[in-house]
Nucleic acid binder design. Sequence first.
DNA 1: GTCTATACGACGATAGAC
DNA 2: GTCTATCGTCGTATAGAC
Lengths: 214, 214
Amino acid sequence: MADDKNSRPARSAGHRALPKSEATRQKIIEAAAAVLAERGYAGTKLSDIGARAGMQAGSLYYHFDDRDDIVDQVLQRSIRGVYERVRGAVEALPPNSGELVCLQTAISEHLTVILESSDVSSAALRLLGQLPPESQRKYRNDQRTYGDYWHDIIVAGQASGSIRGDIDPVRLRLFIIGQLNWVSEWPKSAIDSRENVHREAMALIMGGVTGPVG
Amino acid sequence: MADDKNSRPARSAGHRALPKSEATRQKIIEAAAAVLAERGYAGTKLSDIGARAGMQAGSLYYHFDDRDDIVDQVLQRSIRGVYERVRGAVEALPPNSGELVCLQTAISEHLTVILESSDVSSAALRLLGQLPPESQRKYRNDQRTYGDYWHDIIVAGQASGSIRGDIDPVRLRLFIIGQLNWVSEWPKSAIDSRENVHREAMALIMGGVTGPVG
DNA sequence: GTCTATACGACGATAGAC
DNA sequence: GTCTATCGTCGTATAGAC
């Protein structure tokens, strides 16, 4: 649990929210996410990250320990970022909203994150599978936390009857999230407007291909 | 269009279907697919492929021109393989089967391929996105052929009213195929039996989370 | 903080023995 | 057909100037 970098900057007295070094870290992480998303884990070279962040490869070592440290930050932020966004959206619902509304909100927000940050947030999704197995373990907890959050919504919905009960809740979640995640692989030409993607995704997940009335 | 390897072996007179060299090619391609699926494009080393195929890295060059040639074969077989399987299944239906049945058959067969060859066939799906953009062009045709096949089914179904018409047919296809493709990313623990996955995927895609009767 | 230069290892690819 | 040995290249990481 040695973690000297995440609470940076630990300087004398906090005054500004984004000191220069932190802003640069941000820029590097975003650059790395972009490269990771399009080249994959092993295909991401420090020179690419540096180029996109406007500096030389060697300069990255001032801000990060090594290559994996950068990848690490991208993944952490992505996974936790999606979770916080979705949880925030669901918790913003009026109290006693039905489970179906919670599910719809989670779907909508998850999709929003994918559509708006097609780099930073969707990079993680495609990356987890290509990491060396040991590295994957580090993110299992964050992944499971997010999965559990969905799981609870789905199970509650099935108990109340608002969500069909003849599909295993784990697989139901995996089907839904998988369908949404794959949007990050779409050709850009298929996304004419985010509104359409949202509306149609919701319509399909809710009512299926035969439509809301069977 | 120089393509001297694909029609191998071009030996004196055909006698056996699988001469040794062709069998070895097969084994290498399968090994490569396995490594590609778990390490990604750039993460796949010739030494890994060789190890899994039971030979040294240098020996691979007897069967293939270079690294990209191997990746190429994996992708070609995967994309075309799924297409042929799905088309075969749909064409095996009794004539004048409804479009909805065609769609269901396509879904079922696509999922079957993913579940049974979680290496060879699913490797391609995740790979296309991480290839250097120039390389991607080579597979666009095969991809489009497969997409068009689904497209025709969906459009016909929408015309006849058996498939809801309020979702863009291109996105409807992408949603469905994406949901199925993502199954290759599932933790193995989520697949207790292929039958269950099939049944539930079909139920969800057909009727949505609210169930077949709304 | 960022640069250039360099040490070092890893991987793709080739050559030649068997 | 497959092996071992080797070369060349590229990418990570470090060192030290600015």
